Computed example of a mutant assay.
Amino acid sequence: MTKLSVNINKIATLRNARGGNVPNLVQVAKDIQKFGAQGITIHPRPDERHIRYQDARDLKPIVYTEFNIEGNPQHNFIDLVLECKPEQVTLVPDAIGAITSSAGWDTKKNQSYLTEVIQEFQRNGIRTSIFVDPISEMIEGAKKTGTDRIELYTEEFAQQYGLGNHRVIEAYIKAAIMANELNLGINAGHDLSLDNIKFFKENIPDLLEVSIGHALISEALYFGLDNVVNMYLQKLK
């Protein structure tokens, strides 16, 4: 079964809109795990507009499934990850001020930098994953960095699938086959939803984990958080 890691950035966005601590991010993370999710993902950004660095510290003692911290490996982020020691760190090439992630790494151009950062995390017992587009050259570059896994960036898949273009999956299948041949674990994330997750999962060989936030929290407004987590778990079987 592909594991479900729930990104709780949008819970933090809602909390921050009014100040205070409603909704309580830590309690939501506890509940999501109780509902059956196999991981909690956060993506702190330098301006802390949703997840704050302190949130990572507060979440560490209560995440008993898998703690995944995503972000651009700048100095403050690296320090935070080394302090919290999550099970997994996912490296994402966010521009400062970006609304959301918009591309995978150029693993050729950034190979030496990524290699250095990944080695530091691995020395500290933290599994690493690199956010990449489904491009053979970028997956080959990821392998050379020494990363444990890649995370396939799925925005293009979600957009095209929504338009009825199911052939968009072909590039992702090809990328997954290559990753498997290179002995890289495969994660996926970005704009995956209840509408498209089953099709994606059924077509991607050896998909280990999906990280889903915006769609899942939005769907929970209609169906409830417990129901939505379990709807995803059913589709990922």
Results as ranks from 00 to 15, higher is better:
Ser129Met: 10
Ile130Pro: 06
Asp133Glu: 11
Ile118Cys: 09
Val117His: 04
Thr145Phe: 01
Val117Arg: 06
Glu120Asn: 03
Lys144Tyr: 07
Asp133His: 07
Asn124His: 10
Phe121Thr: 04
Arg127Pro: 01
Gly146Cys: 15
Asn124Cys: 01
Ala142Asn: 02
Ile130Tyr: 06
Gly146Trp: 15
Ile139Ser: 06
Gln111Glu: 12
Gly125Asn: 05
Arg149Asn: 08
Phe131Val: 10
Met138Gly: 01
Lys143Met: 10
Thr128Arg: 02
Val132Ile: 15
Gly141Ala: 12
Arg149Asp: 14
Glu151Ser: 12
Arg127Cys: 14
Arg127Tyr: 11
Glu116Arg: 09
Glu151Arg: 07
Thr128Ala: 06
Leu114Gln: 06
Phe121Arg: 06
Glu137Arg: 09
Arg149Phe: 12
Lys144Glu: 13
Phe121Tyr: 01
Phe121Ile: 07
Met138Ser: 08
Val132Ala: 05
Ser112Val: 13
Gln119Arg: 12
Gly141Arg: 07
Lys143His: 11
Arg123Thr: 14
Arg123Met: 02
Gly141Lys: 06
Asn124Glu: 03
Ser112Gly: 02
Ile139Met: 02
Val132Ser: 02
Thr128Phe: 03
Ser136Trp: 05
Ile130Asn: 00
Thr115Pro: 06
Ile118Val: 15
Arg123His: 11
Ile150Glu: 07
Ile139Gln: 04
Thr147Pro: 03
Ile139Leu: 04
Leu114Tyr: 02
Ile135Ala: 11
Gly125His: 01
Thr145Arg: 02
Thr115Ala: 09
Gln119Ile: 09
Thr128Ser: 13
Ser136Val: 03
Ser112Gln: 12
Ile139Gly: 00
Glu116Ile: 08
Ser136Met: 11
Thr115Lys: 12
Asp133Cys: 08
Gly141Ser: 13
Asp133Thr: 10
Leu152Tyr: 02
Ile126His: 02
Leu114Ile: 09
Thr128Glu: 04
Ser136His: 10
Asp148Leu: 04
Ile130Glu: 05
Glu137Phe: 10
Phe131Cys: 05
Glu151Cys: 13
Lys143Leu: 06
Gln122Val: 09
Ala142Ile: 11
Lys144Asn: 12
Thr147Gly: 08
Ser136Ile: 15
Leu152Thr: 01
Ala142Asp: 05
Gly141Glu: 09
Ile118Gln: 00
Glu120Met: 15
Glu151Thr: 13
Ile135Met: 13
Ile135Leu: 14
Asp148Gln: 09
Thr145Gly: 07
Ala142Val: 12
Ile130Cys: 01
Glu140Gln: 12
Gln119Phe: 08
Ala142Gln: 07
Glu116Phe: 02
Ile130Arg: 07
Pro134Trp: 00
